[in-house]
Design a protein around this nucleic acid. Structure first.
Length: 104
DNA sequence: ATTTTGACTTAAG
DNA sequence: GCTTAAGCCAAAA
């Protein structure tokens, strides 16, 4: 393959529209390996393009906000998502309404 | 080349 | 709903 797994993840992450969120597992699956969700997390942490890669739109499968390397971390991430219109259910994101569904 | 790590996920109690 | 345990993968050291 021409592009590495992480490059696909970057591309996919960058394709997440505003107001929507995707799970690590989802990105991993779209990137080619549904079981590489962990790797996706590591990649996100190591990412160096926060402007091109809205990693704040990537959440855990249960809708919880796990990590964030910018601002105040989770707090900043949550506020940012809220601002974008993502539906929150308390401390977690309502994936039923705000999960990004890629147009196959 | 090998080992460690980590922003995950699912299953079970 | 929360905690514990185990599985699985790619990237970094």
């Amino acid at each position: 393959m021409s592009v590495s797994f992480k490059e696909k993840v970057y591309i996919l992450a960058g394709a997440i529209p505003s107001g929507k969120v995707a799970t690590y597992g989802q990105l991993a699956a779209l990137a080619g390996n549904a079981k590489a969700a962990r790797a996706v997390g590591v990649i996100m942490k190591h990412n160096h393009n926060p402007l091109l890669i809205p990693c704040h739109r990537v959440v855990a499968s249960n809708g919880a906000l796990t990590g964030y390397s910018l601002g105040k971390g989770i707090s900043s991430k949550k506020e940012l998502l809220k601002k974008e219109g993502v539906v929150f259910r308390g401390q977690r994101v309502n994936l039923l309404k705000s999960q990004w569904k890629r147009h196959i």
